[in-house]
């Protein structure tokens, strides 16, 4: 399936869940409503025409304009086609639906995006920090992050 066919399928099925899209780029992407991520992911995974069985990558982004994003790179081993999904939320309400129940790979990726950007994945089975210590404050890859002077009595800056 081409990206356009995938977009049309999603539009026909979910309508307003599709927020934005750009198809004339090397990696065509479709932006979706972060609160409806899971149902869209389930259909893309299960539908015989799309069958996206592989979540290649899940990344977090701070757009530096008050918005945070999650980017999903999907691949189908059966059909050999790819698509990029985006879920963009605000810094005040950083909530995105978890897709761990669809792709188990997403579990640790979502924990990392939570650790680094503070994006809360609703319905995630075990949303803890994965890289930073549990008692760490803040989310280090946010653009407005300030490095603390001390951590547990250890000086952090050079």
């Amino acid at each position: 399936m081409t990206a356009e066919e995938i977009l049309n399928t999603l539009k026909a099925r979910f309508g307003d869940a599709v927020v934005e899209s750009k198809l004339d780029v090397p990696q065509p992407w479709i932006s979706l409503n972060p609160a409806r991520m899971k149902e869209v992911a389930e259909v893309l995974h299960d539908d015989p025409s799309t069958q996206f069985d592989t979540l290649m990558c899940l990344s977090g982004i701070d757009y530096n304009n008050g918005k945070l994003g999650v980017v999903y790179h999907l691949f189908s081993m059966v059909h050999r086609h790819k698509i990029v999904l985006k879920a963009i939320c605000t810094k005040e309400e950083p909530h995105v639906q978890s897709v761990t129940s669809v792709w188990a790979t997403a579990n640790w990726h979502e924990r990392e995006a939570f650790d680094m950007y503070g994006i809360v994945f609703d319905e995630h089975p075990d949303l803890r920090r994965i890289l930073m210590p549990y008692d760490w404050e803040g989310h280090p890859l946010r653009k407005d992050y300030k490095v603390p002077e001390y951590y547990n009595g250890m000086k952090v800056p050079y």
Binding site: L131, M132, P140, Y145, V147, M154, K155, V156, P157, Y158
Partner: peptide, 20 residues
């Protein structure tokens, strides 16, 4: 020894083990 390549932007790195 001193944090190495992480000396400036390494929010997660101790800048030299001699601090502990």
């Amino acid at each position: 020894n001193c944090g190495g390549p992480y000396w400036e932007h390494g929010y997660h790195v101790l800048k030299g083990v001699d601090r502990v």
